[in-house]
Design a protein around this nucleic acid. Structure first.
Lengths: 237, 237
DNA sequence: TTATTGGATTATGTCATACATAATGCGTTT
DNA sequence: AAACGCATTATGTATGACATAATCCAATAA
């Protein structure tokens, strides 16, 4: 028995099991923050970092590669790496592969859609131009007659609601929708969402457009809530 | 003059300027999708991939490292790499360094907060337990008297609204808030947001709790809208 | 027999070195 | 002055070696 095995009662601190790359990555991120670097600024060359941090170029490169992956830096030959304003949503897109997400997360995402579409009513109401409304009217004009059909015409559903996102004028939101689309489609297709019959208070796309035109923000928001009610029904009961 | 310079009018296809790592990364992602791999499944070893794709281990490793960064895989020694259900928000956290985001994106994010908090009213109303309400009441009880002070007590503001997110029960949403917090704080601190005086219709935290207790979903949603009105005012006018 | 120990094995993690390639600047040539 | 070739620089790729953690398995000791 060596000495080591006796040290059970000592207050040993848990060893840091993270890899070198992990550490260097964090060090670099901390650097970006503490140095208050702005987009366009340069960061040290790989070889300089190698010396500064005392690790091999391989490790430096892997860490830089991660920052590149999350969009924090950009590298070009001869020039080195420069800070970049990351495209938040670009990242999500890559990792959002529906069949890899677990059911709970997929449900969360679908719910998030409902939350967003209700919440953005105010943006829509305040920013819709006459042209936007005309376009919405045209979309509605081409939709299937029976509301039951509309329900299952996912493409049309996406077309109408997609236009709404666009009207919101919030680019983060617009990108968000684009990215979440595969997940929505997956949820629709997988039958996770029930589609109860509409009751008398059902608000159609057409109704929505009418209210957007002649109503007020409150009316529109509440109408949007009713429009999405069939989805909510699946959650609350 | 060589022949090359004359080829102006030809339909030449743009050369693919992406790096080898870029290509391998995409190839691997495509593989994950087409093979319908599930979390827990193994992917080929680095050396196997080296042979399969005909590139060096360096390139394979850098590509795998990227997948690791976006949370799609996980690797352990001797075992190799396995598919993982990515934590969508974990990613955002890393890249959300406020001083690196541009103003427009920051504004988008703040707006997104408003959208979400209004939209999640229905979740809150339907999921709040008596204990939740009691907790909210306690939070409100400890808040500064003057509404003007409350406005600038960002910590308190975050405490109250944070609890609301928690009540929503949507984990993606909860994580989202946690992650966006630094950006909110940044926006508050930077004075990007104006804070107009409240008009007569101002809805306080206390009012919100009361309505959550005794009102109905519609009332609560509209109250939340009014509560956030001072922020909206900065956008629409 | 059972538990422990100590290799042997395997696949990722790290290091070192060399060369390829793109971008840039500079001096030479025409 | 424009075009060309050459040197330079920093990232991109390839290769070989060794370190390290996880795992299996056989030999050994209780």
């Amino acid at each position: 028995m060596t000495d080591k095995t006796k040290n059970n009662s000592l207050n040993i601190t848990a060893v840091d099991s993270s890899s070198l790359v992990d550490k260097v990555e964090q060090t670099l991120i901390d650097l970006l923050i503490s140095e208050k670097l702005n987009p366009g600024d340069q960061i040290p060359k790989e070889l300089e970092l190698t010396e500064m941090l005392g690790v091999s170029r391989t490790v430096i490169r892997e860490a830089l590669n991660r920052l590149k992956t999350i969009g924090l830096i950009e590298s070009t030959k001869r020039k080195g790496s420069t800070i970049k304003s990351p495209d938040l949503l670009f990242l999500l897109k890559k990792s959002l592969i529906p069949n890899i997400l677990d059911q709970a997360t997929l449900k969360d995402i679908f719910e998030l859609r409902l939350v967003i579409e209700i919440g953005m009513s105010d943006l829509i109401y305040n920013r819709a131009t006459p042209e936007d409304i005309a376009e919405l009217e045209q979309i509605v004009a081409t939709e299937p007659d029976s509301p039951k059909e509309v329900l299952f015409d996912v493409d049309h559903e996406i077309k109408f609601h997609g236009k709404l996102y666009q009207i919101s004028g919030n680019h983060t939101l617009i990108d968000f929708q684009t990215i979440l689309l595969p997940a929505f489609r997956y949820v629709y297709d997988s039958g996770m969402i029930e589609s109860p019959a509409h009751d008398s208070k059902w608000v159609s796309h057409q109704d929505l457009v009418k209210i957007l035109k002649d109503g007020n923000p409150n009316k529109f928001r509440n109408a949007m809530r009713k429009h999405l009610d069939r989805h909510f029904k699946g959650y609350f009961k």
